[in-house]
Design a protein around this nucleic acid. Structure first.
Length: 570
DNA sequence: GCCGTTTTCGGCCCGACTGTTTTCAGTCG
């Protein structure tokens, strides 16, 4: 029974209780579920060791339910809840603008139990007859259903980032705003983004609203108020904007950056200190006197906290770390001195080694690693053994010719099903470094996959394990592998773990990066670029590392060329 | 249902926008 499965049961209970109108319990169940999802150990171990109640948010009642879930595979309490309410109601709360209260009313008064019935009721104008509903309500419901039917899921950070930047740039050009930023999960650089949030500090809010909705890329204005508006772009992306007065900008930026969990903790801390915090500032609770709000630093300082980077505001210990003055000094893009995962025209990349080398010089890199695919990955024009030797010579020549940078010759070598690498050691020894990767045979059991990867890591020539969990966001689940064992093996054998910076991978993810760091494993960030433009993905790798609390010292490519040569033994 | 350097009981984050019911509940972030 995985942590995710246990969490899913608790989430379902929360949803059902919420529809029933039960207060406070849904929040409690969700909190427990979220903390279980983020545990770095198997929940069954907690059960075995009798330590369930050490998990934040898990008390006597939930601990008992978790035991039942793990031991019997099901939960009577959930069964009973499900019997009380039709299963389709859970779909209904997914419809935007429909919440638990509305679901219950529609069920009680119109016997609506699923999406299909809701759609029909709206089309037949039966909903507008209910007290508190009108024709607009029906329109909104129908639009919500349509959106749900066509939803594309969450957007990858790699796309959202550029949409957000385009909107901000437009606002700056069209309105000359200087206090403007993305906020929300985009500013925290989460791997996937729901809506894009923008914040502006201005004392002419109505003008900001006008400029915002008049952006030619806007296809639909969802809501337009005095200080808050929402639009949809032609691409289907929802963008929300808020305006606050210039002297509240810091408080608002803090507030709208979140995360929600981070803010809730901050509020509790404020209450303990006799303060109140909202998007307008920090106030003394009794006197209602404002003591901070112009900048984020001010807001945190008013709570006795050091300023913390947006990427770690997830309520994962950053507030405690801030109180104790042990916040990490996170890695920055400017610390990066090279890239360890780049494909060239020698396999399926779009740029030649010369072009890549020159581009890397422009980026100020000291080194760049070429890692074309190995022989058996035919779909990616994997390089045959005979050709590899010639390629090595060629890359050495280019490296010597290109001033100011060393081009490191590597390869992204297939890890076969038995854990053996796709090139023999006699060839690997001539490379500067070797990146091992799983690109096939995903459906192995966790035990077999873990063994396969550990075997590969035991090869002395394996330098970096590429995209260790194999996930492809919104497309493919990570393969079944015991990440803890991989991290321990990396620590023991001195293998570097990759943080693959492709927006659809970002693998290792933030939580695993943090785990690896705690075990003393060094991370190598690689863009996996297949074109010069994709070398820019380094920023998303760095962002994900920052979310995983990574500092410069835990990352291979912050080291100078000399140090890297020493690390690689070349 | 959880939780506690004010609390083992009584709290549980806070405000904007919308539609509709002309004073507010519901939803969202």
């Amino acid at each position: 029974m995985s942590n995710e499965k246990v969490a899913r049961v608790l989430y379902e209970i929360a949803d059902l209780l919420e529809i029933k109108g039960v207060e406070f319990k849904p929040v409690a169940y969700r909190r427990a579920a979220r903390n279980i999802e983020e545990l770095d150990k198997d929940i069954e171990e907690y059960l075995k060791e009798g330590r369930l109640r050490e998990i934040p948010g898990v008390g006597e009642a939930i601990a008992k339910k978790i035991s039942e879930i793990i031991e019997s595979g099901e939960l009577n309490y959930l069964k009973e809840l499900r019997e009380e309410l039709p299963a389709g109601l859970l779909q209904l709360i997914e419809v935007p603008e429909i919440g638990p209260r509305t679901v219950m009313r529609l069920y009680k008064e119109l016997k609506i139990t699923n999406l299909h019935e809701l759609k029909r009721a709206a089309e037949e104008h039966r909903i507008r007859r209910l007290k508190g509903f009108g024709d607009r309500s029906e329109e909104i419901i129908l639009k919500g259903i349509s959106l749900l039917e066509h939803r594309t899921g969450r957007m990858l950070l790699g796309y959202a980032y550029f949409y957000g930047k385009a909107i901000v740039d437009y606002m700056i050009a069209a309105g000359g705003y200087s206090l403007i930023s993305t906020a929300g999960s985009l500013r925290r650089m989460k791997e996937t983004i729901g809506d894009i949030d923008i914040l502006v500090g201005s004392d002419e809010p109505e003008k900001v609203m006008r400029v915002f909705v008049e952006n030619p890329r806007v296809s639909e204005v969802i809501a337009k108020g005095d200080t808050k508006s929402s639009v949809r772009l032609e691409e289907g992306v929802q963008v929300d904007i808020r305006v606050v007065s210039t002297d509240s900008y810091g408080a608002a930026l803090q507030y709208f950056t979140g995360s929600k969990e981070h803010n809730i903790s901050l509020r509790s801390l404020a209450i303990e200190k006799g303060l109140k915090i909202n998007e307008y500032g920090v106030f003394k609770k009794d006197a209602n006197e404002r003591i901070a709000g112009r900048t984020e630093e001010e807001v945190y300082a008013a709570l006795g906290l050091e300023m913390m980077p947006p990427e770690i505001r997830e309520n994962r210990g950053e507030i405690k770390a801030s109180i104790e003055h042990r916040l990490p000094t996170l890695v920055e893009l400017g610390d990066i001195k090279g890239d360890f995962h780049v494909h060239s025209t020698m396999s399926d990349g779009g740029a030649t080694v010369e072009e890549i080398a020159q581009d890397a010089v422009k980026r100020g890199y000291e080194y760049i690693g070429i890692t074309d695919h190995s022989e058996s990955l035919k779909v990616a024009r994997g390089v045959a053994k005979e050709d590899l030797k010639r390629n090595i010579e060629k890359v050495r020549e280019i490296s010597e010719k290109t001033g100011g940078i060393r081009v490191l010759m590597g390869a992204e070598v297939e890890i076969r099903n038995d854990g053996i690498l796709d090139y023999p050691d006699s060839i690997l020894k001539d490379l500067d470094f070797t990146v091992g990767a799983v690109h096939s045979g995903f459906k192995m059991s966790e035990k077999d996959m873990t063994e396969r990867i550990v075997t590969a890591m035991s090869n002395d020539y394996l330098t970096i394990l590429a995209h260790p969990t194999g996930r492809v966001l919104e497309q493919r689940e990570p393969h079944q592998v015991d990440v803890d064992t991989i991290i321990d093996t990396a620590s023991e054998k001195g293998v570097f773990l990759e943080l693959n910076a492709l927006p659809e991978r970002l693998d290792l993810n933030d939580l695993n990066c943090r785990k690896a760091k705690e075990k003393g494993v060094t991370i190598a960030i690689g863009t996996d670029a297949h074109s010069l433009a994709q070398l820019n993905y380094m920023m998303f790798g760095v962002a994900t590392g920052r979310r995983g609390w990574l500092e410069k010292s835990s990352i291979l490519n912050t080291r100078s060329l000399k140090e890297v040569e020493r690390s690689l033994g070349i």
